[in-house]
Design a protein around this nucleic acid. Structure first.
Lengths: 337, 337
DNA sequence: CTGTTAGCGCATTCAC
DNA sequence: GTGAATGCGCTAACAG
């Protein structure tokens, strides 16, 4: 159903019909009513492609995420989708599986779809083909979770958050802490969180705890089990994300360690599910939906203003700590003061 | 970068450039090469809106899901996205939060975006404004998870799957089973699963077990706790989905019941996380990614053929049962044979 | 306040 | 094998 059919039936020109939808004030109430009535009767709905072609604005926001299997990104996408819808935008998401090449391919596809802007999570903002393409296409974009001085980023302060967690654990009496992470090299977030871990321990005058890198999430349980058998194993583990924490709890349980009695486990992300688990998962909560929301708001603002987004627009959103039953004081306080 | 710039630089007409990308065989190898070279140099990428407007084909598939907070839908969306990408389609997802009106609104937005087809999950396929709009727009669509004789649906046989679960539990020695569900009225799936529960019990010559409806997932724990205090409480609970099962385990634990020692819990969906929990979650696995994949394949076929999709294209995909540590034999077999 | 018209970028028909 | 011309549906000048 095109604008022309409506114009014909309403006995007006196409321009008038267009105005009724884009600048109703410029049309007399009488004609406006008439056109609206006809439009409704004909079930007219504007053709977005034609509008996009004409205005060079698609009202679509592209989204590039590593995966939806990690609920933290699903939650973020929900925030993005909801806010976008509120502001009259549709979204086109694509997943990269943490692969640089896929990030770039996704951006290319989005550019050709004339998206007005992009929200993305990249593996490495410092050197990203995806971001270069975006720059080349002069498209505004906002990074979620990533942090980098030369790009517009919305994220928590990963390092500070983890350092804080370390302090909490130490206050609870823990002296031997370990960290579980995916490959550090795979993500700037992982590195920043590890930095926080190291810093936190240093601030507490504790020697640097071991880092257990689990490159393939699927084998996390096996990897960890070996590590946790050691006689001087940590009494608490900080895990770089909640999914890893959940697998860590399982690994511990499989070798007979009970959480939190024998081992405390803390995650990072604050996925909703964490609070429903038994034991509930202690974790650093990133406000994922709010992050998604803020990314879209920022982007929509830039699109509206027609101005490029700079790194100055970046900001840190505050994390919170959600205590959980997976955290307790160590049973044998051999290092008691 | 438009086709015209490429044509100019390559010293050919726009028609030739267009052919190079859409019907390369019609162009001589020499010109084809030349055009491709120029196009690459200029970083030309076709304007999807213009193409859509001209061809009346967008190569976009719309997706309407209740929510992404439930990992089952996130997994399905991953399957949809991956398969769509493989076949050269982008997707535009929208969430309905189980609200009929939002389903319809989402469809309207998708229609105006000229999607070529839609994959959706609706609350009630028997009477759905969203589906009516799709029909009116003559757009092919496929329902995921839903089952209805008059629509194209890809799903497991919910009823049979649950009946099967009941048999398994009974074989393990359980005699008092209960079912936990969201509002039955809110979803055809919930009803079909309940039907399976009732049928399974009947087939085992057991009296119908109680149905615990938990209208608001957030209050599941509180609701359930009360119920589980009863002296003749069930020894096993079938939960209509995995999220509910996880909350049920928590509720049980909060009133001192241990799973599976004091209570067995079974879920439905087979979300990936279930296998990582402690205890791991016994559940009926729906192949969510495959469901998404199949929906897209079917849709792409219909789009390509230009033929509408009929209910005859529906099919049942097979579920599997994933045993888990949340299931055990009842401790006190008071109803032993 | 309303109508006429050009053109967004592309695919496609019809000439050549 | 290639080019010129048309129109997909819409918005934005511009004219009235």
């Amino acid at each position: 159903m095109s604008i022309e059919a409506v114009a014909h039936d309403a006995g007006v020109s196409v321009a008038t019909v267009s105005r009724v939808f884009n600048a109703p004030d410029l049309v007399s109430p009488a004609t406006r009513d008439k056109v609206q009535r006809v439009a409704r009767r004909l079930r007219y709905s504007a053709n977005a492609s034609a509008r996009t072609l004409r205005t060079q604005r698609s009202k679509v926001i592209g989204v590039v995420l590593p995966t939806l299997r990690n609920p933290v990104f699903a939650e973020c996408l929900e925030g993005i989708a909801a806010t976008a819808a509120e502001l009259g935008y549709s979204i086109i998401p694509a997943t990269s599986c943490y692969r640089i090449a896929d990030e770039a391919a996704a951006v290319a596809s989005l550019v050709s779809r004339s998206v007005d802007g992009v929200v993305l999570v990249v593996a490495n903002p410092a050197d990203s083909p995806a971001l270069r393409r975006l720059r080349a296409a002069k498209l505004p974009y906002v990074l979620a979770y990533n942090r980098h001085p030369r790009h517009t980023c919305i994220s928590v302060d990963h390092e500070a958050a983890v350092a804080e967690v370390v302090h909490r654990l130490v206050e609870r009496g823990h002296r031997r802490l370990g960290m579980v992470s995916g490959q550090l090299s795979a993500s700037d977030r992982a590195r920043q969180r590890h930095d926080g871990f190291v810093r936190g321990l240093a601030e507490c005058n504790l020697s640097p705890g071991p880092l257990i890198e689990v490159p393939f999430m699927e084998h996390a349980v096996r990897h960890l089990a070996g590590f946790l058998q050691a006689p001087d194993r940590p009494t608490a583990l900080f895990c770089s994300n909640d999914l890893l924490a959940i697998r860590t709890i399982r690994a511990a349980s499989q070798i007979g360690l009970r959480v939190p009695r024998d081992l405390s486990v803390v995650g990072f992300d604050g996925i909703e599910l964490g609070g429903d688990l038994t034991p509930s998962l202690g974790t650093v909560v990133q406000p994922s939906r709010a992050i998604g929301q803020e990314c879209v708001r920022l982007l929509a603002g830039a699109i509206h203003a027609g101005k490029p987004l700079t790194a100055a627009a970046s900001h840190t959103v505050s994390h919170t700590f959600r205590d959980g039953e997976s955290i307790a004081a160590p049973r044998l306080a051999r290092t008691a003061r």
